[in-house]
Amino acid sequence: MLLTLTGVTKTYATGEGPLTVLDGIDLALQAGTSLALTGESGSGKSTLLHLAAGLDLADAGRVELAGVNLTTAGDPVRAGLRRGTVGLVFQQFNLIPSLDVAANLAFQARLAGRHDPAWTARLAQVLGLSALLGRYPEQLSGGQQQRVAIGRTLAARPQLVLADEPTGNLDEATGDAVLDLMLRLVADTGAALLMVTHSPRLAGRLDRRVTLSAGRIT
């Protein structure tokens, strides 16, 4: 199993007392499969994604990624996993504003030590970015920026792609096109995909679907 969450609980302190965002979550994801995580706003979807990426730590339970227990791993180990095993696609794209499209596309692959210029060029072509390689993020539309973010993730050939509403900032047509691309490329590379989405329509296109409500899987 590539990713396993067992009895995971996460609580935040708020002005009105502690707020339990995740409450005893059990979840598993195999390599080469895809899973949609849906639920209302505030149901804990993004928090679950953050825990799976090692960006945050669970208060209780166990998060295991590629055989490593993230709950007890230190920052360098978790950073290493993010660099080598995980690929993150953010809703806000999070491109490096001072690097051009070509440098952004190759960025994570270079960090992971797996930069393959031919593969990156093919991704650029498939994603329709070949003509934009010299541009900077501020010169791109939202859809173009999201395609760069997906390309950056896939160029590093991660085992697990974690996507947080990757089409949330795009119109429906562009969102569909981007998702098509992402699913095709994830399947090509044999990676697993865990995608947070509000949209039941998009969720229906993945292998499995899990719905969160008030911090629990329903």
């Binding site: 950073a79 290493g80 996993l81 993010r82 080598g84 993150l88 999070n94 490096i96 960025f107 960090l111």
Partner: peptide, 16 residues
């Protein structure tokens, strides 16, 4: 700041 967060998210540790 946003770039530094992205770098962290992409796998560079705080120390690095």
């Amino acid at each position: 700041r946003a770039m530094l967060r992205t770098l962290r998210a992409l796998g560079l540790s705080a120390r690095e």
